[in-house]
């Protein structure tokens, strides 16, 4: 059993390390930037993997280029723009804000507003239902009073 666990652990570690090369960096900031970028850039060849996970040739090339650009001291946005310039917006996991994608942000807000409106309206209707019926309320009060005075 223990050996089986060990085996499982070992096999997991190789899966995790598959897309990772050991690369020398001057400082931890650059290493962090490289790791962030390779996780946020999407492999154009595979349908849903980032370039850190993928071992497609194009992902390897993109990792190399990212490393090169990080080493040259480019900023995160510059490197993302470099990739978008070649592979389109598909390559970055956060979509740009434009006429087509604005729906992604507006639709949830719109739905929330509609629900709030609906709830407020219903509450108002219920209140109206009670307050608009004054004679009924008087009648009810009279019955309650009669019931109490009996005791």
């Amino acid at each position: 059993m223990r050996s089986l666990c060990l085996l499982l652990l070992l096999s997991l570690s190789t899966v995790w390390a598959a897309g990772q090369e050991i690369l020398p960096f001057d400082d931890d900031g650059q290493r962090k930037l490289y790791q962030e970028l390779t996780q946020q850039l999407r492999c154009p060849q595979c349908q849903n993997q980032n370039i850190a996970e993928s071992n497609a040739v194009v992902s390897i090339d993109m990792r190399e280029k990212t490393y090169e650009l990080v080493q040259q001291g480019h900023s995160k946005q510059e490197i993302i723009d470099y990739m978008i310039d070649r592979y389109g917006y598909f390559v970055h996991y956060s979509p740009p804000l434009n006429a087509l994608t604005i729906m992604l942000w507006l639709l949830p807000v719109f739905a929330l507003l509609m629900m709030l409106l609906f709830m407020l309206r219903r509450k108002k209707q219920q209140q109206q239902l009670i307050s608009s019926n004054a004679p009924l309320e008087q009648e009810l009060n009279a019955i309650i009073d009669a019931y109490r005075s009996k005791k």
């Binding site: 154009p44 497609a56 090339d61």
Partner: peptide, 12 residues
């Protein structure tokens, strides 16, 4: 080194 292919946005 497939650099031209990268500049062209070639994925394969």
């Amino acid at each position: 080194n497939r650099r031209m292919s990268m500049d062209l946005g070639v994925s394969g």
